[in-house]
Amino acid sequence: MEASNSLFEIARFLKRLQWAAVGLGVCWLVWLLAPVLTPFVIAAMLGWLGDPLVDRLQRTGRSRNVAVTLVFTLMALLVLLALLILVPLIERQIATLVESLPRYRDWFIGTALPWVEAKTRLQLTTWFDLDHLIELVRSNWERAGGVATTMLGYLSRSGFAVLALVANVALLPVLAFFFLRDWDVLVARAASLVPRDHLATVSRLARESSDVLGAFLRGQFLVMLVLGVMYGLGLWAVGLDLGLLIGIIAGLFTFVPYLGPASGIILGTIAALVQYGDWQHVAGVLAVFGIGQVIESYWLTPKLVGDRIGLHPVAVIFAVLAGGQLFGFLGMLLALPVAAIANVLLRYAQERYTSSRLYAGEHPTIVLDSYVGAPLAAPGNTPESRREPGEA
């Protein structure tokens, strides 16, 4: 009996080892194919986000192809509208930034660095002197052999990267359309591969993961959009030339907790000091982001997002940074889906653990049904213990 138990444990360990090897192989393959997989992942996310609307249109009597065409056209029009509004706006803001670069340079060298030097007693101005930098490069030029070759290789790689980016952008709408059209078929085929004994559990976990992540992404996108518009208009009302650009950046970075308002406050404060040089406009910048944070915390996030993902902000930051470190831009795209699925699995594991014998112990838990405030009877002093044997 003991020998059969040992063989069973060894077989189970080897099976788990095989699954771990398969998981590591999949991660390695994703790392290798990250640039190729990026448009497929974006298209799959678009198809997954648009599928509920397609299903709703189907329930009204429309065919799948008609519903997919309507939803895809709506998504394409929204993207086109966003590009028509944002691209000229961002172009003008970048042109303003380029024109303002000399002022930022003068403020940085003439105001910021001396203030930092006075506070820290470090000589930083020397390192930002143009003549000193040129002399430093000239003195180390011989040590930097092969610079031309390195630059040419970088330029050639950059050219291929640009071509790959253009190809991915052109491929994205095609992939999104097919994912949107065949999403239910893909889900059904994936479900057909699940072992029948585990189909109910896997279906429940997949449904919970989809609901959690879909609600979070849709709500978070709306929060980013509203905050970007709010910050941009607020900074523009304060009088910052780059207010709209800073507001857009802060709205986009809102996806990572605390990074959006922190980056907006830093960039807005610098822009206010460079443009006006007084603390009144800095106070205006702080007021814009303070009001924005109050609206986000007490209205936007509870109404649009809520606690749908169930992840702590530190976990979200770690997931995004770890995904970017491991798999680049693809990892950042997959970070929150993987984190949401992992959170659902952890809740399921906790549920199984609290129902297991390991948690409850070998002996059943005795629950005393007593009224509130009743004194705890001492052992041997209960009515049952005072009864004689055979007494009812």
Rank of each mutant, 00 (worst) to 15 (best):
G260N: 07
L336R: 01
G214C: 06
L53W: 11
M224A: 08
L286T: 06
G243F: 10
V274T: 09
V320S: 02
G219T: 06
G61H: 07
V98Y: 09
A335I: 02
A360F: 03
F8M: 11
L217V: 12
F327P: 01
V344L: 00
A360M: 10
L124D: 08
V22R: 09
L163E: 08
V54L: 11
V288D: 04
L345P: 00
S210Y: 14
M75H: 06
L244S: 05
W28L: 03
P35V: 11
L46S: 02
T126K: 11
G146W: 14
I270H: 00
T38R: 02
D106S: 14
G380F: 06
R204M: 13
T365I: 08
L172N: 04
R59Y: 02
R121W: 06
V137A: 14
F177K: 14
Q350H: 10
V229N: 00
H312M: 08
H312D: 13
D106Q: 14
P39C: 04
T150V: 11
G324D: 01
M1W: 09
R189I: 08
K15S: 12
F327N: 01
V314K: 05
V316A: 01
P389G: 12
P102C: 05
T201N: 09
P261V: 12
G146P: 08
V71S: 07
R59E: 14
Y353V: 05
V316F: 03
G328K: 12
E9S: 12
E91S: 13
H132Y: 13
L199M: 14
G324M: 05
L233P: 03
L17E: 07
F108M: 09
V285T: 01
E351L: 14
L213G: 01
V344P: 00
A188Q: 15
I265Y: 02
V372C: 03
A43S: 02
V174I: 13
I291E: 08
S263P: 00
G234I: 00
P313L: 07
D129G: 07
L46K: 04
W19C: 05
A315I: 08
F40K: 02
H198N: 15
V212L: 09
R103A: 13
D307Y: 08
I266M: 09
S63L: 05
G23S: 11
S4V: 10
L235T: 07
L334T: 00
A11Q: 11
L124W: 07
W107C: 05
T120E: 12
R386A: 13
T254A: 06
G159F: 12
E117G: 02
L130I: 10
T125L: 11
G247N: 07
P52N: 11
Y348I: 02
A67P: 00
A339G: 01
F179C: 01
M45I: 08
I309D: 02
V185H: 05
I341W: 02
L155R: 13
V285A: 01
L7V: 08
